[in-house]
Amino acid sequence: MTLLTEVQTLIRKEFLVEWRQKYALGGILLYVVSTVFIVYFSFSGIDAKAWNTLFWIIMLFASVNAVTKSFAQENSQRELYYYSLARPAAILLAKMIYNMLLLLLISGLTYIAFSILAIDPVKNSSQFFLALLLGSIGFSIAFTFISAIAGKAANSSTLMAILSFPAVIPILMTLLKISANSLGLMTDTGIWKDIGILLAIDLIMLTLTFILFPFLWRD
């Protein structure tokens, strides 16, 4: 089997697992909606600036919750079985792509829920959706890899938070800037440079995770 077909099969497996345990996906989606509600009730009025910050904070927490289980849910025997069938790189790549799709879904849902309940301040929608896409890719790479690290330890949920939050701050700060620009909160002529920086951070993380993952999976 080539890497590509392996990845395809594994992504299909991820979807299948998700479909069979509907509570996981449903839980995440409900989590997003209820968080948006809490935020909406806690703030009497949300202006564009608060919207931008709150949107990415909700995204961050929902993403961590969604991705944490990706390695933690596998028990070690089943993991061993996967690694005997497929290349570690394929397993990592499949999980990353699956998580990216999941995060895109979450971000889309957050956006819809947030703009129905509060306001929809997005002025430059193509730039905003580009930020969502790049954000989902970046969060997915960083969180998937860190969940692989945290999944090896006993107290994985605490570790997931303390390892991943500082590590995604470069991505988050760049995203906040691009998204603020798309909301018309600031005008930055060099916004493509920021997008380039975000892409570069994503790319460096991706390369590094593929170099490091072979050392991580085997027990």
């Binding site: 890899f145 690290i149 390892l163 470069p170 460096i204 490091l212 050392f215």
Partner: peptide, 23 residues
Amino acid sequence: ISNVYNIFAFSTLIPLLFVIPRL
């Protein structure tokens, strides 16, 4: 595992200290 994390940590240090402050 901690050495894997250490390499990862150094790679996040570079954008934190040298890229983001420029933005």
